[in-house]
């Protein structure tokens, strides 16, 4: 639902739900994102072919597949990040809460405020830890003063980094360790309470311990957001997600509950990839 220009977007309060184990049934959650007939082009080359699927709220959907299969491309359609580049183009329908985000009527910066993104490498801004997390909120202007402090603390807690940085709020974000920087970037992304959180290979550049911390954190965040993760790491997808989609050469080959995909996938290709016959 696009906010009207008069009422600020408010955080929808939902009754807490018991944590689902990965692989729980698809039908328990509301549909958040609907993708119909999505095609994507880099110049003349087509990168995504007729993607059709739905992504549900309050769950973690992982997209896996070999390099170049289009999973990052798909992710970047969801917040129209591709629009920054002149020769990239998307065709089709992508509806978040029923509204087509690919239409010209949509305000792209508004969309990106509602759909957060975390990148492969940590990208802390050249400012203090506090300012990093607060930036999104400050730009939006809806939160000020002591409430700003509360929101920053909430985000840092949810990102499982509060205890480590609570006395370091004014140091430059770039002076943190790699794993801490990435959690800072996650805190920054969730501080604005996005409806959808996109993570593009978030632990690719991190050591195993930081990776574990972030995976644990994602499990707790699952209750608040619709989380979509692109990952190269099959074990990570199996550990973290409750829905997994397998992509190959720009097509969505199969998508379903993670428990099923990783044990008895319907499609031969999926099986080959999972068992390591190619990839």
């Amino acid at each position: 639902m696009m906010p009207s220009s008069k009422t600020p977007k408010s955080w929808k309060i939902r009754p807490p739900v018991a944590t689902e184990a990965p692989g729980a049934d698809l039908s328990v959650h509301d549909v958040k994102v609907e993708i119909r007939g999505l095609n994507f082009y880099y110049g003349a080359a087509q990168a995504l072919f007729d993607i059709n699927t739905t992504l549900e709220d309050r769950s973690i959907t992982a997209f896996i597949g070999p390099s170049g299969c289009g999973k990052s491309t798909l992710l970047r359609v969801l917040n129209r990040m591709y629009a920054l580049y002149a020769n990239q183009r998307a065709d089709g329908e992508v509806r978040i809460d029923g509204e087509d985000i690919l239409s010209d009527k949509v305000d792209v910066s508004e969309l990106r405020y509602r759909v957060g993104m975390v990148f492969q490498k940590p990208t802390p801004f050249p400012m203090s830890v506090f300012d990093n997390v607060a930036l999104g909120l400050r730009l939006a202007g809806a939160v000020r003063g002591s409430r700003l402090h509360e929101r920053v603390e909430e985000a840092l807690r949810d990102a499982a980094i509060w205890d480590e940085v609570k006395d370091l709020l004014h140091v430059d974000g770039r002076s943190l360790s790699g794993g801490q920087q990435q959690r800072l970037c996650i805190a920054r992304a969730i501080a604005v309470r996005p409806e959808v959180l996109l993570l593009d290979e978030p632990t690719a550049a991190l050591d195993p311990i930081s990776t574990l911390r972030i995976e644990e954190m994602l499990q707790t965040l699952r209750e608040k957001f619709c989380i979509i993760v692109v990952t190269h790491n099959l074990q990570q997808a199996a550990r973290v997600s409750n829905v997994t989609g397998f992509m190959y050469l720009g097509q969505l080959i199969e998508i379903g509950p993670s428990s099923k995909i990783f044990t008895s996938p319907s499609n031969r290709k999926t099986d080959d990839y999972i068992t390591g016959r190619f990839g």
């Binding site: 008069k6 305000d107 910066s109």
Partner: peptide
């Protein structure tokens, strides 16, 4: 004029 419009301007 709301905040977003000011930013766009």
């Amino acid at each position: 004029m709301n905040r977003r419009q000011i930013r766009k301007a």
